[in-house]
């Protein structure tokens, strides 16, 4: 799977919008920078996340980072597999390593996010 149709933030999250539902994760570039991820702290179903605001924390062996919501909405699903298998984020950041699904309040807001090409020029990937 390749995330050509995903939207990206400059904080290295992606969102894959299907209607008003958006699956959120971190980018391949981000997981490589973090190194081995050992704990992921996520919100609960029903919680609200706000565009640009932290919604969780990812702890790698090397460092700790906040996770920023790409768009505003209500948390519809949480990837509970990450409790026991946080390494999924390293192994498959655009697939099995997804973090949450958000019911997005205003899908049109996605226009303000980056395309894959824009994101890759930001991270210096050819």
């Amino acid at each position: 799977m390749h995330p050509e149709n995903y939207h990206f933030t400059k904080e290295h999250e992606w969102i894959n919008l299907e209607g008003d539902k958006g699956t959120v994760g971190i980018t391949d570039y981000a997981q490589k920078q973090l190194g081995d991820i050992v704990f992921v702290e996520l919100p609960s179903e029903g919680d609200t996340v706000q565009k640009g605001k932290p919604f969780g924390v990812v702890e790698s062996v090397k460092s700790v980072s906040d996770l920023y919501a790409p768009l505003t909405g209500r948390v519809a699903r949480v990837n509970t597999r990450l409790t026991d298998e946080p390494e999924l984020v390293n192994q498959d950041p655009y697939g099995e390593g997804w973090l949450i699904v958000v019911e997005v309040t205003d899908p049109a807001e996605a226009e303000g996010l980056m395309s894959l090409a824009e994101y890759e020029s930001l991270t210096g990937k050819s």
């Binding site: 190194g35 081995d36 050992v38 062996v61 090397k62 390293n90």
Partner: peptide, 20 residues
């Protein structure tokens, strides 16, 4: 290797991954 600065030296921080 991925490198980082340690006390003014450009040293490997990891190759395959710290846990490995």
């Amino acid at each position: 290797a991925r490198f980082f600065d340690f006390a003014g030296w450009e040293m490997p921080i990891e190759y395959s991954g710290i846990l490995d």
